[in-house]
């Protein structure tokens, strides 16, 4: 998965439900089967929560998961 690739939800002005801070672009490390990727997603800068959008989870992430599982 490309570093710096940004995955945002298709719609909505998402904020953190805990602190009500609007989400801003950030990075998340995704780990699977001893591999790690750094991907751009929306994050809560205060609570350090990352929003994984549906398209990303069912698209690229699933594809990479399957690839790694067959390695």
């Amino acid at each position: 998965m490309q570093i710096n690739q940004q995955f945002n939800p298709s719609k909505g002005s998402w904020q953190c439900a805990r602190c009500r801070t609007p989400l801003e672009p950030g990075h998340v490390a995704l780990n699977y089967l001893e591999n790690s990727f750094r991907v751009g997603v929306l994050v809560c800068p205060r609570c350090r929560q990352a929003l994984i959008p549906e398209d990303m989870a069912t698209g690229k992430m699933l594809e990479v998961e399957k690839l790694l599982e067959d390695k």
Binding site: E24, G26, V28, A29, L30, N31, S36, F37, E54, L62
Partner: peptide, 15 residues
């Protein structure tokens, strides 16, 4: 909707 992934969310950082 609902969806899932197996990857584990690790370190989260600001841009």
């Amino acid at each position: 909707t609902a969806y899932s992934h197996r990857m584990v969310i690790g370190k989260i950082s600001r841009k």
